[in-house]
Computed example of a mutant assay.
Amino acid sequence: MSLSDIRQSADDRMGKSIESLKANLGKIRTGRAHAGILDHVLVEYYGSPVPVSQVASVSVIDARTLSVQVWEKTMAQAVDRAIRESDLGLNPISMGDNIRVPMPALTEERRRDLTKVVRGEGEDSKIAIRNLRREANETLKKLLKDKELSEDDERRGQDEIQKLTDRYVADIEKLVTQKEAEIMTV
């Protein structure tokens, strides 16, 4: 394994950590309607739990209302129940095969709680990035020990991995700050 392979592997894996953070932050609701908020809600569909997006189309009507258009009329009640029982605190309104989901306004206390959740997600991602840095550095040290890498190359590799880590940690900070600002705006 070469220095560039180690760097590329660390870069790819750190990038996946950022994507995971973005997905997790997208699930945290801000009081504004967006179609992705129902992505993790599972509906019982002929005995199998499936995401709402596989049995209905979800669209945004306005800033505080989602529309869920069920493809099979028989599934409307199951989709309604799944949204109601989810941990999102939503109260859908059924109208035949169309379900309206109004987004309740967030209280100040709930907004503060959500910012703590966002910070926790950010911290988890930073820990993941640091663990990837440690793994890459251990690989470099192993190559040095096995005489496959010179000390200068090992040092250069550690510096590159550290710069990579710093860049991704800064990206995490930026994402967390943006999400906190989004949550705290009324």
Rank of each mutant, 00 (worst) to 15 (best):
I83P: 00
V68W: 03
A82W: 01
V70W: 04
G31Q: 08
S57C: 12
E72V: 06
A78I: 05
E85Y: 00
K163N: 08
L175T: 02
S57F: 09
T74R: 15
D146R: 11
G31F: 08
K126Q: 15
R100V: 00
M14A: 09
S94L: 13
M103V: 00
E109T: 04
E108Q: 12
R119V: 10
S20T: 15
G96C: 06
D11L: 15
A136M: 06
E148M: 11
V79P: 00
K142Y: 06
Y168N: 13
G122W: 04
D166N: 12
L42M: 13
L175N: 09
A23R: 09
L114P: 02
E72R: 13
D171C: 13
V70E: 05
L66N: 00
R64E: 02
R100W: 02
I172M: 07
Y46M: 03
D5W: 08
L114Y: 01
D152A: 15
E44I: 03
N91M: 11
P104S: 05
Q158D: 12
D171K: 13
P49E: 07
K126E: 13
T139E: 14
R112C: 11
S2C: 11
A63K: 01
V41Y: 03
M14Q: 06
S4T: 14
I93Y: 03
V169S: 04
S86Q: 06
R111F: 08
D5Q: 14
A78W: 11
G157K: 08
S53N: 09
L42P: 02
L140I: 03
S9K: 15
